[in-house]
């Protein structure tokens, strides 16, 4: 169903367990052993960071909305769960994914415009023309089995922001956590509402600190607070009665924040939300922000460009 996540193709065909995902990727690499050993690549999340940056660069030139950028990122993720990266020109795949995502998100871009901008961005790496982009579109749609409707966490965030009295700062922070999760495997592992709830939780506990953005990760303390809130919610579902409020804060603002976290934890306890999933999402995000510190843009770019050049994937 188009509007019902539970019956959507996203849930039925594009939500995997970690093990399934690992197996799929292993099979892909096995099928291309010589390529894989000849062209080592950085870890997957670093590739995702790089792809994300490229999509954003292209999107910025064309004034494309975040929702379409996010859909394009999912398309890239789905595609590379079925096709070995080294067999493709990632710049072509990125451009095509964005072109297709814009059509699906009802903000279409003319194909010639996308081609022009793609060429201008990566002149050395992509001999792009309309027919190449069109061909790659067939490839992309075919690998995704024409399952192109994506359920995003943004919608859950929007619909819940009033229930939890989220401030604009908190909404922004939750939004940026959602933006960041596209650089992890989470979109292929968890339903969008679990992602959104995790993002809200992190926004609530991270609030006084600077935005994690994509560079400065949240502190271990804050993450501990998030995990504690989840543990509390988990305990409540187990039937334990009243919970004692957290450490007493003098600051009024701080108190309000704590009560917000409590309200949220109570909501989680009372609804049938997959809290374990949220714990895992939180940990994946912590781990992602740590991994982000190790990201080396130059090295990532060079490793990608090496196989693109060496295999002649940049040629028409």
């Amino acid at each position: 169903m188009a509007a019902n996540y539970w019956e959507s193709t996203q849930r039925r065909f594009w939500q995997f367990s970690k093990e399934e995902l690992a197996n799929m990727r292993e099979r892909l690499e096995d099928s291309e052993q010589s390529l894989v050993s000849m062209f080592p690549l950085p870890e997957r999340r670093h590739l995702s960071i790089y792809f994300n940056q490229q999509i954003n660069r292209l999107g910025k030139r064309l004034g494309i909305r975040q929702q379409a950028l996010a859909t394009a990122q999912i398309y890239v993720k789905r595609f590379y769960s079925k096709v070995e990266i080294r067999r493709t020109n990632p710049y072509l795949v990125i451009t095509t994914a964005l072109y297709l995502a814009c059509k699906m998100e009802e903000c279409p871009q003319h194909i010639r415009l996308i081609v022009t901008e793609g060429r201008a961005l990566w002149p050395e790496l992509l001999a792009l023309d309309v027919s190449r982009l069109g061909e790659c579109e067939f490839f992309l749609i075919s690998e995704m089995n024409s399952q192109l409707i994506i359920h995003q966490p943004y919608r859950t965030l929007t619909s819940l922001q009033q229930d939890f009295y989220l401030t604009p700062d908190e909404i922004n922070l939750a939004t940026s956590v959602i933006n960041d999760h596209y650089m992890t495997d989470l979109p292929l592992l968890y339903p969008p509402h679990i992602i959104a709830l995790t993002a809200i939780l992190l926004a609530l506990v991270l609030r006084p600190n600077p935005v994690p953005g994509s560079s400065s990760g949240p502190t271990a303390n804050n993450m501990a607070a998030a995990t504690a809130a989840l543990a509390q919610a988990q305990a409540r579902t187990g039937g334990n009665g009243q919970t004692t409020p957290g450490a007493s804060e003098k600051d009024k603002q701080q108190e309000a924040r704590v009560s917000k976290v409590h309200r949220f934890a109570n909501f989680l306890a009372e609804s049938n939300v997959d809290i374990e999933g949220m714990v895992d999402c939180t940990q994946e995000l912590i781990s992602f922000y740590e991994c982000h510190e190790q990201y080396n843009d130059k090295m990532t770019r060079e490793q990608i460009n090496r196989f693109v050049k060496a295999r002649g994937l940049d040629k028409p």
Binding site: M1, L100, M104, L133, G134, E137, S146, L148
Partner: peptide
């Protein structure tokens, strides 16, 4: 030539894949 799939075809493909 490949010219890019029309938006209405993309919509029909995506919607029909979901609806049952």
């Amino acid at each position: 030539q490949y010219t890019g799939i029309s938006q209405s075809a993309v919509r029909e493909m995506a919607l029909c894949s979901e609806l049952k």
